[in-house]
Simulated assay, not measured.
Amino acid sequence: MEKEWIINELPAKTWNWLKMNESQVTAVTDAIPCIPQVGVETSDNSNGKLPEGVSFEKREIKKGIKTGMGAQISELGSQDMADTLRIEENVQIKSPVVISYQYDAEKNYFNRMQIIAEKDSEIEVIFIFSSDKNSSGTVIHQLLVDAKEGAKVKIYAAQLLGKNACALLDIGGACEKDTSVELLQMQLGAKDLYAGCQMELAGAHSTFRADIGYLADGNDRYDMNYVARHIGKKTESQMDANGILKGNAKKLFRGTIDFITGCAGAKGAESEDVLLIDEGVENQTIPLILCGEEDVEGSHGATIGRLDEQMLFYLASRGFDSEEAKRLVARARVDALCAKIPSEEIQKEIQMMLDAQ
């Protein structure tokens, strides 16, 4: 069964004639869950079991967390229970937890999970979404983050799906006082990608940082929506996107900093750097600041450029043809982000996927 959804809506409408305020997508609703592999990759925990103080089980869904893609995605599946990674109060996990989803070709999947980080806990979580190179089907994944007072959560996510797949990856989070949530996302697969994230900085001194990297090639279409909502006083956000567009790829990126009345002393910044490799690409970017509070600092911007002719000349003088030179420049950007993932095994998996393209 298929359904029409309106997703990735901007918090406030802008330039209606550009038709960038939201997106409409036709997606399946009769999807099945994918059973993830969950464990820890460390030399002192070779059996892969979760350490003491961390559990992965079905638990009641935290109500009221809004996500970047919108309410219609939240209507899928069970409204009561979800796979839950929970970190107990005052527990600090030094090694990252790895959650790996491996999808079969031509099937449709939906998973919802949540991370509950109790008071003063710390954890790093790595998500891997992968399938065979030529697999298709639809993957829908929604992640809810509930960060209690003083919690620190770092999330790394690598999307490595087949180039005929459709992916809808949705994130929502709520941050209490003195919390820190960091997100690093790498979007390297799928023909049609829809990604969204909304983080509510409700507690004073809570922070959110997002680093988003993407590589769109061929006839790929990437549609993204990231929102930082400043509610508490002296909250901080930083959202940076770094992307490469090749072939006839199309991309729309929305980045919003929303200062809610009462968030005095809040600071937010958002930027995007896009490299256009080929003439046939289409790039759309909306940096947006909404301000309901006077005592705030906000900045946004976008840098869009093409390959430097001097660099291409230099590489040509070293024996690289035009296509190889383009590949090297694009790969360098991806490698820089990949190096931030705290797992050599997963870094190798990403490198192998890029080598096979």
Rank of each mutant, 00 (worst) to 15 (best):
G301L: 14
L315F: 12
K234I: 10
T303F: 01
G301E: 09
G243W: 03
P287K: 01
E272D: 10
K233A: 11
A302T: 14
N248G: 10
A266M: 05
T303Q: 04
D295C: 08
S317C: 07
K246W: 03
D258T: 13
D321I: 12
G268K: 02
D273L: 05
C263K: 08
I244G: 08
H230F: 01
I304G: 00
A302G: 00
S271F: 03
Q238F: 11
A266E: 07
E323F: 00
R306Y: 09
N248L: 10
T285M: 14
C291D: 05
P287Y: 05
L288M: 06
G301K: 07
G292T: 11
A264G: 07
I244H: 02
R318T: 09
L315G: 01
G262D: 09
L276S: 05
E272Y: 00
V296I: 15
G298L: 10
I289A: 10
E282P: 00
T256W: 04
N283V: 13
D240G: 00
E293G: 12
D258V: 12
E323R: 12
G292C: 08
N242L: 11
I244T: 15
L252D: 02
L276Y: 06
D273R: 09
G292M: 03
I244M: 10
A266P: 09
V274R: 00
A241L: 06
I289W: 09
A302D: 01
K251R: 13
G255C: 13
K234V: 07
R254A: 02
G255H: 11
M311F: 06
S237D: 10
N242M: 13
I231L: 13
T261V: 07
I260D: 13
Q238W: 12
G262K: 14
F320T: 00
T261K: 15
I286N: 09
K251A: 03
G301D: 06
Y314H: 06
E324Q: 15
D295H: 07
D240A: 04
E309Q: 14
C263F: 01
S237H: 11
G232C: 04
N248P: 01
M239R: 01
T303K: 04
A302M: 02
Q284Y: 06
D295A: 13
L275D: 05
K233D: 01
C291T: 12
L252Y: 05
S271N: 10
P287D: 03
R254V: 00
I257R: 03
V296P: 03
I231Q: 13
A249D: 07
A266K: 13
I289S: 05
E270G: 05
L307K: 12
I286S: 03
T261S: 12
N242C: 08
F259G: 02
E324P: 00
E297M: 09
K234Y: 14
E294P: 00
I277C: 05
D321W: 04
S299Y: 14
D308G: 08
G232D: 00
L288E: 01
A316Y: 10
F259W: 04
Y314R: 03
N242Y: 12
E279P: 02
K246V: 09
K251F: 04
E279W: 11
